[in-house]
Design a protein around this nucleic acid. Structure first.
Length: 290
DNA sequence: TTGCAGGGGTCAA
DNA sequence: TTGACCCCTGCA
C-alpha cells in the first residue's frame, strides 16, 4: 500500500497511492495540520511532522524509516487499499462517483483517541477556524512542549484537563464547552482503562459508553469512533451530511435514524469513508446550502 | 458602526 | 421537541 523509495539526509521519500494532503487534512477530520510555504506541518502523537507530496510521492522531513513504520503507517492508514474502496463506492451511483473523484486523496487518519474525543466536544456548534484556535490554546496552556526548546505543544493529556480549574480552561474561549471538557476529563481519570474498554466492546456498546460522557452526543460519539480508527463503519451525521444525503438521495427532509439506516444499508462497511467523501464534496460544492 | 444569524451539537425541561 | 449555550465571523 506504500513503498519507501529512499532515505537520505534524514528525509524519507515514500510513494503513497490515493493520498493528497489537502484532501486528507481539509476534509474536517483533524485540526492540527496547516500548510506553510508548500509544506504540510502537523502535530500528532506528540510530535511535529513536516511533509510534502507531489504526484503520489511524499517526503517526510526529519524522519527515519523506523519512526515512519512504527507510527505514521498506522496514523495515515497506509495499510488500507483506498483504490479498491474507491472503485466499490464509485460504482454505487453518479453522486458518489463525483464525490470520490473530488476527494480522491482522502485517507481516514487513525488519530489519538483522547485528542479526538476532546476535539470533537469542542467542535459542537462551532466552526473549523475557531475549533483550531481553541485546540491550539488548550495545547499551549495544558499540553507538553514537543521538545525543550519548542514553542509547540502536544494535545494535553486527560489528567491535565481534569485537574485544571474551569476558570483556567475558560481562557481557551471554548465557552460552554469548557464545562464539558472539564467534566468529561474528570470522569475519564476515574476510568483509566476507558479507551481499552471502548476498544473491547462491540460498536453499539462502545457508542453507548461514549454517550455517558458530558458533551458527547450521537454525532460526537460517531466522530470519536470513526476518526480514532475504532469503527470505520461509523457514520457521523452533521448538518452538512444530513443535507447532502437529503439532497442527493431523498429529495426531502429526512430524520437522522432514516439516514443512519440508509447509510448502513447502502454504504455498508465503507460508511465512514463514504461519509468523508460526501462531506468534503458537499462543503466544497455547497450542496444543499443555497 | 451596529445588530443579527449561524456555525461539523448537546442538554435539560 | 425546543431553546439556551460561548464566542466569533460575515454580512447587511
Amino acid at each position: 500500500m506504500y513503498q519507501i523509495l529512499s532515505e537520505k539526509n534524514n528525509n524519507l521519500t515514500v510513494e503513497i497511492p490515493d493520498f493528497n494532503p489537502a484532501h486528507t487534512f481539509l476534509c474536517g477530520q483533524c485540526f492540527r495540520w496547516n500548510q506553510e510555504d508548500g509544506l504540510w506541518i502537523g502535530i500528532a502523537r506528540g510530535r511535529l511532522v513536516k511533509l510534502s507530496c507531489n504526484d503520489g510521492v511524499c517526503t517526510f522531513y526529519n524522519m527515519d524509516k523506523r519512526e515512519f513504520e512504527d507510527i505514521w503507517v498506522k496514523y495515515f492508514d497506509l495499510e488500507t487499499d483506498y483504490g479498491s474502496i474507491k472503485n466499490i463506492l464509485s460504482e454505487k451511483d453518479e453522486y458518489l462517483r463525483n464525490a470520490v473523484l473530488h476527494g480522491s486523496g482522502i485517507r481516514l487518519l487513525r488519530q489519538d483517541f483522547y485528542e479526538i474525543l476532546f476535539s470533537f466536544i469542542i467542535s459542537q456548534n462551532n466552526n473549523i477556524p475557531r475549533i483550531k484556535q481553541i485546540i491550539e490554546s488548550l495545547s499551549k496552556s495544558f499540553g507538553k512542549p514537543l521538545d525543550r526548546s519548542s514553542s509547540l505543544f502536544g494535545f494535553p493529556d486527560v489528567s491535565s484537563l481534569a485537574y485544571a480549574s474551569l476558570d483556567k480552561l475558560s481562557i481557551c474561549k471554548g465557552g460552554y464547552r469548557c464545562r464539558y471538557i472539564s467534566e468529561s476529563a474528570k470522569k475519564l481519570v476515574e476510568f483509566p482503562d476507558f479507551e481499552d474498554r471502548i476498544r473491547s466492546l462491540c460498536k453499539v456498546k462502545a457508542r453507548e459508553l461514549l454517550l455517558t460522557l458530558p458533551g458527547i452526543g450521537p454525532k460526537v460519539a460517531d466522530c470519536v469512533l470513526l476518526y480514532s480508527g475504532m469503527d470505520r463503519t461509523s457514520f457521523p451525521i452533521d448538518r452538512w451530511v444530513k443535507r447532502v444525503i437529503e439532497t442527493l438521495y431523498f429529495e426531502r427532509e429526512t430524520d437522522e435514524k432514516t439516514i443512519r439506516d440508509f447509510a448502513k444499508e447502502y454504504f455498508g462497511e465503507f460508511s465512514g469513508i463514504a461519509q468523508q467523501y460526501l462531506f468534503y464534496y458537499a462543503r466544497e460544492r455547497k450542496i444543499g446550502f443555497g
